[in-house]
C-alpha cells in the first residue's frame, strides 16, 4: 500500500465511517430509549413521525437545529458557548481507539484487511480514560457559566460525582489490564480468546457497570440533571443546538462506556462461546454486546428511583473503591502464583 492510502485515505474513511455510525447510533439510541421505556411502562412511545415513529429522532434533531438559541443575560458568554463543545468533543474522540471488529477492508477500499479501529494506540485504554475525564469540564463549566442557581448546583454535583466515580471506574479496569498485560484495546480483546475476563474479573465487572452508569449521569445516578429536584441540572438554561450537544454527548458517552465494558470484559468482537458456528461478522458481535449494555441502561432507568447526592458519594468512596482495590490484590495474587 502506498503512503496516501495508509496514512490519509484509510484513516479518513475510517473516521468518517465511525463518525456516521456513532451519530446514527446516538440518534436512534434516543429513539430506542423512548420506545423501550415506553413498552416497559405500558405505553407506545413515539408513533407519529414516520412508521412507528422511526423518524422521530430526525424530527427532534431538526427542531433543535431550528430553535432559537437563548443565552441568559448574566451568563459568561464565552464559557457558556464553549461548554457544550468541551462536552461533546471528548465523547467523540474516545471512539478513536474503540475496535469495532477484528479486521476490515472498509467495503473494498483497502486491498488487504486492516485492523478495524481508527488507531490502535498502545495506550488505548489510558487514552480513553484520560480524554473522557475532560468531558466533566463541559458540564461543570456549563453549570457555572449559566450564572443561575439550579445549573450551578447541577454542575457541582456532577463535578463531585464524576471525580469520585472516575477512581473506582479506572481501578476496576486495572484487573483486565493486568490479565491482558497490555493497554492496547485490541490487545485486551485478543487476550480474551481463551476466556472472557468477565469470569475471573466478575467483581471488577459489576463495579464497572455501576460506576459507568454514574459516570454517564444516567438513572439512578442522574443527579446532575435530576429533573424533579434541579429542574434540568446543568443544562437548565441551555436551548437549541447547545442543548443538543449536551444531549448527544450523554448518549455518545453511554456508547463509549458500553464499548469499554464489551472490550474489557465481554471479549470485544469475539463470538459468544458456543455460538461461533453462526459465522456472523465480527462487528455484528461487537454491536450486539454493546446493545445488551445499552438495553441494560434503559432497563435500569425504568426500574430504579434516584439516589441522593450524599448516598451516592458514600457508596462510591466507601464501597466501590475498596472492592476494586481488593480485586486488584486478588488478581495480582493469582498472576504472581
Amino acid at each position: 500500500m502506498d503512503f496516501t492510502t495508509t496514512y490519509v485515505l484509510l484513516p479518513t474513511a475510517k473516521i468518517i465511517a465511525v463518525f456516521i455510525v456513532v451519530l446514527l447510533t446516538v440518534l436512534f439510541l434516543t429513539y430506542a430509549e423512548r420506545k423501550v421505556i415506553a413498552f416497559m411502562q405500558v405505553r407506545l412511545g413515539p408513533m407519529r413521525v414516520g412508521p412507528w415513529g422511526l423518524l422521530q429522532p430526525i424530527a427532534d434533531g431538526i427542531k433543535l437545529f431550528l430553535k432559537e438559541d437563548i443565552i441568559p443575560l448574566k451568563a459568561d458568554r464565552f464559557v457558556y458557548w464553549i461548554a457544550p463543545t468541551i462536552s461533546i468533543v471528548p465523547a467523540l474522540l474516545s471512539f478513536l481507539v474503540v475496535p469495532w471488529g477484528s479486521e476490515t477492508t472498509l467495503f473494498g477500499l483497502a486491498k488487504q484487511p486492516v485492523p478495524a479501529v481508527i488507531s490502535d494506540l498502545n495506550i488505548g485504554l489510558l487514552y480513553i480514560l484520560a480524554i473522557s475525564s475532560i468531558g466533566i469540564y463541559g458540564i461543570l463549566l456549563g453549570g457555572w457559566a449559566s450564572n443561575s442557581k439550579y445549573p450551578l448546583l447541577g454542575g457541582l454535583r456532577s463535578a463531585a460525582q464524576m471525580v469520585s466515580y472516575e477512581v473506582p471506574l479506572t481501578l476496576a479496569l486495572v484487573g483486565p489490564v493486568m490479565m491482558a498485560n497490555t493497554l492496547s484495546t485490541r490487545g485486551i480483546v485478543e487476550a480474551q480468546k481463551g476466556m472472557w475476563f468477565v469470569v475471573p474479573q466478575i467483581l471488577a465487572f459489576l463495579v464497572y457497570i455501576a460506576c459507568a452508569v454514574a459516570e454517564t449521569n444516567r438513572a439512578p445516578y442522574d443527579l446532575p440533571e435530576a429533573e424533579t429536584e434541579l429542574v434540568a441540572g446543568f443544562h437548565t438554561e441551555y436551548s437549541g443546538m447547545k442543548f443538543a450537544f449536551f444531549y448527544l454527548a450523554e448518549y455518545a458517552n453511554m456508547i463509549v462506556v458500553s464499548s469499554i465494558a464489551t472490550i474489557c470484559f465481554l471479549g470485544g468482537w469475539l463470538p459468544v462461546p458456543g455460538l461461533s458456528f453462526l459465522h456472523l461478522p465480527s462487528f455484528v458481535w461487537f454491536a450486539l454486546k454493546v446493545g445488551v449494555f445499552l438495553f441494560g441502561y434503559l432497563w435500569i432507568r425504568a426500574t430504579y428511583p434516584r439516589y441522593r447526592y450524599d448516598q451516592l458519594m458514600a457508596i462510591g468512596w466507601k464501597f466501590f473503591i475498596p472492592v476494586t482495590l481488593i480485586n486488584i490484590f486478588i488478581t495480582a495474587f493469582f498472576l504472581l502464583k
Binding site: I37, P220, D222, A226, T228, A302, T303, P305
Partner: peptide, 16 residues
C-alpha cells in the same frame, strides 16, 4: 411521589 424520587415506571402504572 415515586416520580419525584426518580422511579418513573410506577408513575405510569398508577395512572393506568
Amino acid at each position: 411521589h415515586a416520580l419525584d424520587i426518580g422511579a418513573m415506571t410506577v408513575f405510569l402504572y398508577a395512572f393506568r
